[in-house]
Nucleic acid binder design. Sequence first.
DNA 1: TTGAAAGCGCTAACAT
DNA 2: ATGTTAGCGCTTTCAA
Lengths: 334, 334
Amino acid sequence: MSDGRNGPVTIHDVARAAGVSIGTVSKALNNTGSLAPATREKVLAAVKALNFRPNVLAKSLHTGLSGTVGLISNDSFGRFTMPIMEGLEGVLSENGMGVFMCNATDDAEREKAHLEQLLAKQIDGIVVTSRRADRRPAVDLQGIGLPVIYVFSHSDDPDDLTLLPDDEGGAFTAVSHLIQSGRKRIAHVTGPDHFEAVRLRQKGWLAALAQAGLPPGPILHGEWSEAHGRALTTELMVGPFRPDAILCGNDRIARGAADALRESGLRVPEDVALVGFDNWKVMVEACRPPLTSVDMNLRELGAETGRRMVQMIRGTPQSGTIRLPCSLVLRDSA
Amino acid sequence: MSDGRNGPVTIHDVARAAGVSIGTVSKALNNTGSLAPATREKVLAAVKALNFRPNVLAKSLHTGLSGTVGLISNDSFGRFTMPIMEGLEGVLSENGMGVFMCNATDDAEREKAHLEQLLAKQIDGIVVTSRRADRRPAVDLQGIGLPVIYVFSHSDDPDDLTLLPDDEGGAFTAVSHLIQSGRKRIAHVTGPDHFEAVRLRQKGWLAALAQAGLPPGPILHGEWSEAHGRALTTELMVGPFRPDAILCGNDRIARGAADALRESGLRVPEDVALVGFDNWKVMVEACRPPLTSVDMNLRELGAETGRRMVQMIRGTPQSGTIRLPCSLVLRDSA
DNA sequence: TTGAAAGCGCTAACAT
DNA sequence: ATGTTAGCGCTTTCAA
């Protein structure tokens, strides 16, 4: 607490207290070189007594590594970034590393400013995340060779490493489940098709139908909202194709669908089964009935990002686009 | 790009390129000391040419300041932490500072581990946030005098600085609005009363009623869910007190209330007006009708945290509990 | 106005 | 086994 002098406790204070040189303290702290056990004990005792905490910034000057990663979000720390960040931070902090949060909100200027700050802070790597998984220009590292991972965001440079959920596989799994539980007329109500994820999920839906020899139902596009889920579902149900199941592009659409069906006197899942996408807790639980939904496992996506980032920082380069599996979470709607 | 040598460009490289000493480069960069304009130009030209970026870690060794703040969240980066983080990061990054994200999830061990990492990284301050605003033990800084701000979380040490939304004022504003629009029988359906926020909102509700000379309606407690919103509202409507308005403890409860009312044939807001709390976009917009709700202005709360953190780091100590105003966002339900 | 030199807290090679 | 010393990239006196 009161070490007599002012300012933080340094390695010199420890050396003095233990009656050794600072080099010896350093060795004791890092288990390097050779040291008499007794000396080590003495040093560690002084460290405890003085409550000494090594300054990692000073250490960084030597190693060239700061033990720090920058996370640039274009999601304003939104719903998708959160779990990714959680998984990432968990893995990195286990490795003694920290995460700098930056919010760029799809503003190139802000992103550039953040990049400058991060580089000045000597970060060891960059993670770029986004609100959606469409292609974006690669971050401009100005020739500085720094590991970069795009997660839930997609660099247009194929030499970059991009981590994404397997949207197509997720949709395939969901539709296969519907088919296995006896559904034969499966429609798809989803979001705007300028989203890559929308196109991929559509592909998975079609693939599962094709594999079972079932005809593709209609596909309806709209905004990602409950209101559109209701409207599109109503539209769908008065059409010629009477679905016995609907794969929804996200949980909000699915919840809108559930409401529309119930209010038109149809039962879920007896008359029409429903599967959502995102497995967003507040949505799936509030839905009537509770919604079966595809989970993109974003937490795990973030954790995998962390593991790969550690590898890259240690010198193993990685590139390409990797898709991690989604999982279907069963509830009452399908 | 290729500066001939390996590794990052240092101040020495710039000095060499500009034909001056490193001391001169430093002065040119920081506008300190006296320097011939021509020399400054020469240096800055070299900086540009080499794409030199000062190493702030090295600078930190002198200043003792890292330009870095740690944010310890106990919310797993949840819905409430997000906007706070966004506001905080915005202000701090404007000041050239960065934010380290840590997720402690209410685990004292994890919090301690994070604290150690943050201190080793020489952070200049700590922000502690939480899922709810109940009291918590102060972070143990072990005698290190470091600025700490509790936001959307409440230290049990009155000498700490705590920033919170004005729950009571928010409820008061909401109920006053209901009264002004002619409502006279105002009930309160809310969350578990072990939440400080619940008790404060209740207080605001009562105060507004008292000021208007209206009798307090019933108050019903339940979980923060739509299901409980529906159940409690149904219970309320069959009771002896026929409310013409309900202040809801959060938006989920309010949305449940809206559904229950509509499904029992009552119109919102004609028969019963509804006000929610949180102004959570997906909830208020999906609600039928769109929900009038109290916004806690968490983004601004985060921004204010950032401003005060900057002040504290600059040497102005602060303490006490400060409550920032909520605002009522009008939509169709009241 | 500019340069030389002494550190900031720490590591690591080299002496002893 | 331990101490000495030369930096890591930068700032900041103090001389010149």
